[in-house]
Design a protein around this nucleic acid. Structure first.
Lengths: 342, 342
DNA sequence: AGATTTCTGAGGTACGTCAATCAGCGCGGA
DNA sequence: TCCGCGCTGATTGACGTACCTCAGAAATCT
């Protein structure tokens, strides 16, 4: 019932403490047969290393770097804040977190930044950048150097990253589609889809999921081609205005990406059609206020606190080479309406 | 930049290690002026006790007990499973968790069980039981004995408990109300509300929130009086059947409590009206399957994994007398439809 | 068989904290 | 002057693990 220690397995395996240590830490100098005997004892006694005592002994300091997009973005700001909060809390956890920002529009600059971080040999990286060949290569190099890498919010599916911390965007798009269809009701009309950029994989996947579900289940809705705002307030305003004017049958707007603040400003300036359903992504000050005031009907979100804590836990697990608790690291697709605002 | 240790604050305060230790652990034998000097050094250097090193040194074992309702209940089963999973993971480092079950219908038996647990002097309790004066008293006695107490899922607002781990049920009811109203659309008709028992505070609060929002925002809906199933399959089936037969204008069913399995079976047996909207609570095998098959339109849920991990973290924090990270312990009201099933 | 290499054991120090002991200080009262 | 008291320092041994050294045993090669 008591937790076995290295001493116990040394006794059980009939070897010395030093040998157990060598086996546990995969140090050389132990015969294969002896390794097996120790492993066996470990399994039999159910020994699990006390990683805190271990870190204490080796006075290890974990160094993690988060690579976030530069520029004004309320979601990234919230993420950064959550990260700082989490960092403060687990300051006691002997790990330091550094945040660097990169211009995501320049793949080479991003790759350079990642390479530069890699050369400081941190224990792990969490990166939130668009998918490009340059970035994939950079991730490969990091992994080759034995640095843990997790992707955050936006995945790099064909890269060497250890883990993706984020939601399934196709499911998120489908969720938005169902809510749109059900909130709109029986009316027939069109739905505007806006995003900051259709280059981003997450936007593409959301659109895909949204279209799938709307075409299958809500034939009364016509989904208009996606409009890109490129994070430009003026452009966003003009998209909204012209969509409202050009489509008298406009029933809903699905905002897949960033720039909700500008979308809402544009909508306030234009004559918002009666009963227009607006569904946006990510809980930010702008979308929160819009939910409270009824300007947005639902927000599809991923909890930033959960994101950063999960990223930190996974990085830690990867650098210690221990298993993660999958159920704890599954990021949920939150559906937020005014009534369940956290 | 490096984490200060007791040695550092001893040096900073110009006292010995022993004195620092006495101050930190509030042991007697230190002059007030010296205490102040040490405290000052702690603040200045930003010292935070390495709780793992501390526990290692004092080889403390935390003992926690979870008090759960007895009887067949898929939600409680899921909770128990999540608890076992969390306990198995290293999350529960040097803490053992015991689960006991109590017959929640008997307040005296519940109180007796809690008292019995208390006399074994564990470090903390997480309890999920209905609110009764007996239980409130029992909690008071536990607290008086210095045992940490958190309420789980169901709160005891006027008791001495340290913390409530669960959702705001009024908000959950409001959320269900909005979803019901919006999913039903413009049609006029009635909504059935069922629960296992209206004695339970959570059911009362959910009903309150549901009514609030429906009466304010959806005047086209009439909410029928709550029906209680008392966790009896036969009773539940008859409630459903007679509701469907007696109310030809039935547009929706809101299931606030347990027994969704029986509700759905009853609904399958009865002639389910076209377009009936069903909203239930808690993600269980029954509701999951019903979501997938379109028998339930939305589920209001609280993540069981999050619940138990939060309870464990809070208990740990309370027994160590350290602060909790509020944002991490806020249990979200999950809205789950088929598309964002985890 | 002897030489060499490979394994293994014994033991130590360290990490940050707790807890206990013992010694010593200054001060005031007897 | 001596005693007791309140406060403080110094020291020590845990806790579970990491990592190092050194000596010596065992296996392997020549």
């Amino acid at each position: 019932m008591v937790k076995p220690t290295v001493h116990d397995i040394a006794k059980e395996a009939g070897v010395s403490l030093a040998t157990v240590d060598r086996v546990l830490n995969a140090r050389p100098g132990v015969r294969e047969a002896t390794v097996a005997r120790v492993q066996d004892a470990v399994d039999r006694l159910g020994y699990v290393r006390d990683s805190y005592a271990a870190n204490l002994a080796r006075k290890r300091q974990y160094r993690y770097v988060f690579v976030l997009p530069v520029g004004p973005n309320q979601f990234v700001d919230a993420l950064r804040e959550a990260l700082i909060e989490a960092t403060g809390a687990q300051l006691a956890e002997r790990s330091s977190v550094k945040i660097i920002t990169v211009p995501t529009h320049d793949p080479h600059a991003v790759a350079r930044a990642i390479n530069a971080v890699g050369s400081t040999r941190p224990d792990g990286l969490a990166i939130m950048v668009p998918e490009t060949p340059q970035v994939r290569d950079a991730v490969g190099r990091l992994k080759a150097d034995g640095i843990a890498v997790v992707t955050l919010v936006a995945d790099l599916p064909n890269s060497a990253r250890d883990h993706f911390v984020g939601i399934n965007n196709r499911s998120a798009g489908r969720t938005a589609g169902v809510l749109m269809g059900r909130f709109v009701g029986r009316a027939t009309g069109s739905v505007l889809v806006v995003t900051h950029s259709l280059q981003a994989r997450d936007s593409i996947e959301r659109r895909l999921g949204f279209d799938e579900v709307v075409s299958q289940e809500f034939p009364n809705l016509v989904v208009l081609p996606s409009m890109e705002s490129y994070d430009d307030p003026v452009r966003m305003a003009s998209i909204v205005t012209s969509a409202v004017n050009a489509n008298p049958d406009l029933l809903g707007i699905y905002s897949m990406g960033t720039g909700n603040k500008f979308l809402l400003e544009g909508l306030r300036a234009a004559r918002r059609p009666e009963g227009l359903v607006v569904i946006a992504h990510e809980l930010t000050p702008a979308t929160r206020q819009a939910l409270e005031e009824g300007e947005v009907d639902a927000v599809i979100a991923q909890n930033v606190g959960h994101l950063v804590r999960s990223a930190l836990r996974v990085l830690r697990a990867k650098s210690d080479d221990v298993a993660i608790l999958a159920s704890q690291e599954r990021i949920r697709i939150d559906v937020i309406i005014r009534e369940n605002l956290p």
